[in-house]
Simulated assay, not measured.
Amino acid sequence: MALPSVHDQGAAPGDHLGGLPPHARLLLAFARLRLTLDDIAGIRALADDPELSWGHFLEAAAWHKMLPLIGRHVDRHRLDRDTDAGKGFPYPWVFIGAYLANRSRNQALADEFGRVFAELGAAGIRFAVRKGFSLGEGTYHDPALRRIADLDVLLAREDAPAAHEVLTRLGYVQGKVADDGERIEPYSRDTQIFWRMNLSNQLPYRKPGGRPDITDFNVDICHDIFQRKSGVTADAAELLSRATPTVLCGTPAWVPEPVDRLLDLCSHLHKEATSLHFIEDRQDLQLSKFLDVALVAAATDPQTWKAFQERVAGLGSQAIVYYALHFTDMLFPGAVPVTVLDALRPDDLDYLDQYGSLDGQTSRWEQGFTERLFNSGRHTAGTVSNVPLR
């Protein structure tokens, strides 16, 4: 099932949100895999708005990781050309070039991560691929549409030592990219201890990328799709027992089964939207993450939704899941069934405007959701992440 067109609801993108600037409305109009003729006409009308700032649009498209998707739309629908409906997009090579460059970059990532899958499998290690290529190949049906930063894998804690041996043999080091961009420097002992005691992920494994478009290859191992301080747990070993075999990056692999996959996307979105580390890096609210959830949600059948609600209730993760689905529904009305939202809605919604709880520094946003979503200058009331990365 595809996302419903905004024109099916008799509205232009962002009308239901109120007060969005022209560049934000245009960005929302592009946020779908397929465009109808009405969608294209609406995009041309939005692009012809004399108050539209193309500079703001380009900055927002890059920040929200939407440039590759926009580039394909510009190319496929000839939006770079003048028509009777309006002038063509300026600087089309920026958008189309971003799509083509992302295709090349993601192919290099696929070649590398395919080798990682093969070596993990040969060592008898069960794993499941989260987000990234599982979405690019399985949901978007075009890996070039998503900018993939790293390889996220679910792995049982008891398999971590064996996976460490595999990744070390492949040239990976648990560390950060050195200032010269040519080496990976191991993390400090304090950083290693903090991550081991407080987070559900291993410290990232990296090795130099050796390409202008790939600073490093990054493998992120996760043992639980919820953070320790969330009070909710879904251990990787249990999720792997239900994982589905597939082929990704041309290599046999596994992905979480549909209920766990949607649960993982919701937990991931909530973590990054409310954690100080991601807020400081301006990676907390990105339209691309909400689009991921919306596309998977729109393709979820009633039976899977029922099983999803039961699993959420069993885990006690209603607040985390509702956060993700609520804001996804705001941006993409119709992607999440109303009955599901009603069933998962907590009695107290005050937490929807809070952040920093996972850091032990709960604060409240001064701006509303849609205002801060498109406001790159939003602030965080002076709170600072305590997650060490040195």
Rank of each mutant, 00 (worst) to 15 (best):
A144S: 14
L145S: 02
R146P: 11
A149N: 14
A149E: 12
A149D: 12
D150H: 08
D150N: 08
L151V: 04
L151D: 10
D152Y: 05
D152E: 09
V153R: 00
L154D: 11
L154F: 12
L155Y: 05
A156L: 05
A156P: 09
R157D: 11
R157T: 13
R157F: 03
D159G: 04
A160E: 15
A162L: 12
A163Q: 05
H164A: 14
H164D: 15
V166E: 08
V166R: 05
L167K: 06
T168I: 02
R169Y: 08
L170Y: 07
G171A: 04
Y172G: 00
V173R: 12
V173F: 03
Q174S: 01
Q174D: 06
G175W: 01
G175C: 08
K176C: 03
K176N: 03
V177F: 01
A178D: 11
D179P: 00
D180R: 07
D180H: 05
G181M: 01
R183D: 12
R183I: 01
I184R: 01
E185T: 15
E185K: 02
S188G: 15
S188T: 14
R189Y: 04
D190W: 08
Q192L: 05
F194K: 01
W195M: 07
W195R: 01
W195D: 05
M197V: 12
M197T: 13
N198K: 13
S200F: 10
S200K: 08
N201L: 04
L203S: 07
L203D: 03
P204Q: 00
P204V: 13
R206D: 00
R206P: 01
R206H: 09
K207V: 08
K207Q: 14
G209C: 06
G209V: 06
G210H: 13
R211I: 00
P212Q: 08
I214S: 05
I214H: 06
T215M: 06
D216V: 11
D216H: 15
N218A: 00
N218F: 10
D220Q: 11
C222R: 09
F226L: 09
Q227Y: 07
Q227A: 10
Q227E: 15
Q227I: 04
R228V: 11
K229A: 15
S230Q: 09
G231R: 09
G231E: 01
V232Q: 02
T233P: 05
A237T: 11
A237W: 05
E238Y: 12
E238D: 12
E238R: 14
L239W: 03
S241R: 15
S241I: 04
R242S: 12
R242G: 00
A243V: 04
